[in-house]
Design a protein around this nucleic acid. Structure first.
Lengths: 337, 337
DNA sequence: ACTTGGCACTCGGGCTAATCGAGTGCCAGG
DNA sequence: CCTGGCACTCGATTAGCCCGAGTGCCAAGT
């Protein structure tokens, strides 16, 4: 259906359009790439590509620009992830290695990714659902209030205030803390729900009301919007990529946690870079945006996702390379802690 | 120097320009405000105002727009903070009351402020330097690593990884934890440095190396960029306020923690709303932006600052009202925990 | 001394017309 | 199937023009 030259033409169109941001015509193509055929031939090819929906012309008598479908074909078949040079990789590594806690790792990651790709970077904290409990701490706040602190093996520290139905004494708190740590330490957070369900038996009767309050807060922490935490960086890069639809919509979308979750995608395929182009991310207001995402974490231990968001007119090979490289090192750093 | 009418004219110019975003001429002024004089008179007044530097005309034969100096006079003498209605205040209160931990309070605050003012909202977490220690926790991570968790009475939970020079055993950690909590609990974080300095004496000799590592991490946590934490929201509102200079610069500035700190201002005046107009915040790239900020926390217990950033062409009375109201309720909520 | 109406002047924004040129589609010939 | 030639389209640019909002100034009025 599409012979080699037509594919080469499509690839050339994508590459030129990405780098120039202008519709590309048949002459420019033969000039800049060494296709040794005449412009007229290219025009015929382009007519076919257009008919098949890979490219369009914004208006009669202008060059062609790729459609979402065209980018899709380009990403799937016509390009390879651009690997990073050893020097670049070393730079990434040392930049990330300086971090000294999880927040810092995530912040550095997002900054780095934004800078490398000149796009908006999005990094998800390690999912609670993929972590295990390292420690549970109960800190007295006031008469009927405790601060529950949940520390995971990925370094996340979640805090919640627990309102108790009754006042408590030091001893009962210590006991409860001991029980919690004994039973939860090392458990996957996905298992915590079932474990917690059995806990009331192990608590003295007169303390059960308070304990129940603590348990329910633990359970709440594992679901809802607290479960995932995402940060965004490099928003200023959006101004360079003049979006056809309002910049406003894009900025708004990027401020919504739930939208970001959807963008990073729920796919379980952690290892390979996924690309969503234009309307493929069914988020209103991101119709002209693409997302390049990948899971990070060690191979046997996926943690969460990270990626970049930019205009569909994006340098996919480079973006994919950057995302993959950063994910690799971030995963590595976190595995070490 | 400036009689009452001239001041009234300046006020009218600011108000009209803020609401219409168009240079305002003498005719429009007499029409929309009931100054019962002729346009010609107004023109004379405007000539004086311009000579004094309160207004300018973008080009000959256009209306006038206020200068930074004009806005300054407006804010200082010609306007009053717009109070919020009881209904609005109630809405603010209930919106914030739903929060269940510090992160949540801060997030809701920033959202609320952005929505109320339709500007970019900036909220600083309670300063560590104004908090006291509630609890210190040491969680074993690996052979030579501890997670130090520092919980303050304002609800902030700071975590840092401590690399130990030597391996440790359970007991020594428990002991160290006990010492730390005994000595630091309830102490102001500003006092912690001096307290920590005396701690080594209270630790068994053979544990001092490890203890010293922990101490130094504690001290590090109190300074540097970790001391303050700021979040930003409502960036999409920037698109509506077309900045004369690039939007890009503004977005970039808002991504820099240090810049944000400067914007909120180091002034100690916690109680009253401060306004910085245009070049007054000496941040390159925010020359056409204004900042409205105020401290929050209970009267006897200032915690940190919050505010909004917008174009100099901003509705100051309303913004100041919103900032003050939100600060009041946020401070209230936090005082309750 | 201030206010006012009148008046000439300026100049940016918006409209139209004309031109330019990049790029196309098509066709006939190799 | 490729290629050169050619007529055609249409967006972008430029130039010219007018309009009108707004000004500054001045002379007359209160």
């Amino acid at each position: 259906m599409l012979d080699d030259r037509k594919l080469a033409v499509l690839r050339a169109i994508v590459e030129d359009y990405v780098s120039t941001n202008e519709p590309v015509g048949s002459r420019a193509l033969v000039d800049r790439h060494n296709l040794d055929v005449s412009p007229a031939t290219i025009r015929n090819d382009m007519a076919v590509l257009e008919e098949q929906g890979y490219i369009v012309q914004p208006h009669t008598s202008a060059g062609r620009i790729p459609t979402d479908k065209g980018y899709r074909l380009f990403v799937d078949k016509l390009s390879a992830i651009k690997p990073f040079s050893a020097a670049e990789r070393r730079a990434i590594e040392t930049f990330l290695a300086g971090a000294y806690d999880l927040d810092d790792v995530v912040m550095r990651t997002v900054r780095l990714l934004a800078q490398l790709t000149r796009q908006v970077a999005v990094v998800q904290y390690p999912s609670l659902s993929k972590s295990s409990v390292r420690h549970v701490e109960l800190v007295p706040l006031s008469d009927r209030r405790l601060l529950l602190v949940l520390i995971t093996d990925t370094g996340r520290v979640e805090q919640r205030v627990v309102e108790l139905p009754a006042s408590y004494d030091e001893d009962s708190i210590m006991q409860l803390r001991a029980v919690l740590n004994a039973c939860l330490d090392g458990r996957k957070l996905t298992d915590v729900a079932s474990v917690v369900a059995e806990l009331p038996d192990r608590v003295e009767r007169r303390e059960r009301a308070n304990a129940a309050a603590v348990f329910s807060v633990i359970l709440e922490t594992l679901v809802g919007r607290h479960e995932e935490k995402i940060i965004v960086g490099g928003a200023s890069n959006l101004t360079a990529a003049d979006f056809s639809q309002g910049l406003r919509e894009v900025l708004e979308a990027l401020e919504e946690q739930v939208v970001l979750m959807r963008l990073l995608g729920e796919s379980d395929d952690q290892s390979s870079v996924t690309v969503r182009i234009g309307a493929e991310n069914d988020v209103l207001g991101l119709r002209t945006a693409s997302v390049v995402a990948v899971g990070y974490g060690s191979a046997d231990r996926p943690l969460a996702k990270l990626g970049v968001v930019g205009p569909t007119r994006m340098d996919y090979p480079t973006a994919m390379g950057a995302v993959r490289a950063v994910a690799r090192y971030t995963g590595q750093i976190l595995a070490e802690s």
